[in-house]
Design a protein around this nucleic acid. Sequence first.
DNA 1: GCTTGATGCGTGTATATACATTCTTGCCAT
DNA 2: ATGGCAAGAATGTATATACACGCATCAAGC
Lengths: 148, 148
Amino acid sequence: MEATPHLRETVGCLCLAARRAARAITASFDRGLRAHGLRSTQFTLLAVLALKGEQTIGALATIIGADRTTMTRNVALAARRGLVTVARDEADARSRRVAITPGGRSTLEEAFVTWRTVQHTLTEAMGTAAADGLRRIAKDRLAARSGA
Amino acid sequence: MEATPHLRETVGCLCLAARRAARAITASFDRGLRAHGLRSTQFTLLAVLALKGEQTIGALATIIGADRTTMTRNVALAARRGLVTVARDEADARSRRVAITPGGRSTLEEAFVTWRTVQHTLTEAMGTAAADGLRRIAKDRLAARSGA
DNA sequence: GCTTGATGCGTGTATATACATTCTTGCCAT
DNA sequence: ATGGCAAGAATGTATATACACGCATCAAGC
């Protein structure tokens, strides 16, 4: 009926697949983290800071794979809520050193239990192979960002 | 050094992986589609309408896997740009029937060539197995939305 | 010291996203 | 017929995202 059979190729669009998957997965985590007053974005930020210690805005953007300007706003939000602190770097006045606060760490610890539950549920639902595949795509795509 | 070795588990966070992958993949498509004045979101919307014919807002939300309120705004944007039309359903005045315009179809056709290139490039970069895995996750997660 | 380019961030703007709520409309039982 | 509930959509609000652009600062030369 449609005069555009070639468009059927777009049914397998990787962009739709990736965004759809991300929306669904994010929703699952957000629903769980909600009880702790966190969103997926904030949880990730806190986890990175807790694991790797204080970081600059740019470093966080690279690690999390988001735009630097996006990270500026995400960090500002977390700072406003007292989860992290932002301080000038004494060695380089251009840089901002972002660090997790004790309160942020407490929140993270509490949320971690919930996170783990959701993580396990989703891993089971999609299978470990798919989960590993997704992580690999995330890592590889990041590399391609600077390359091509 | 850190007193939180258990948090290392979050390195494999599926939410971070999914969002990071989606951001990177979206960026690739957006860069390509830019020449046609489209974003990934709009491209997907047009492709669905071209393939499946006119749809209601709610149907589009289900198909694309986004919130209905998000779809309302995405459709409004496309309508403002003349890519789609929004009309009341004569059978049910609550519904809105969204249809692609001739202009929208032309834009889609032009953008399709670019889309195909990016799609192939990314498929090669991540491998067909990973691409299929991603699509499967997107489909499965969607099902889980209504179920649990 | 000053210029020049590079680097790290922040802002303006536009879109994308979703939850809570409200509005409109349809439907159904009484 | 109508009152109440359900369904479809729009709006208010907050966050997430990125590009274009500008500002501050540093590093290298000179």
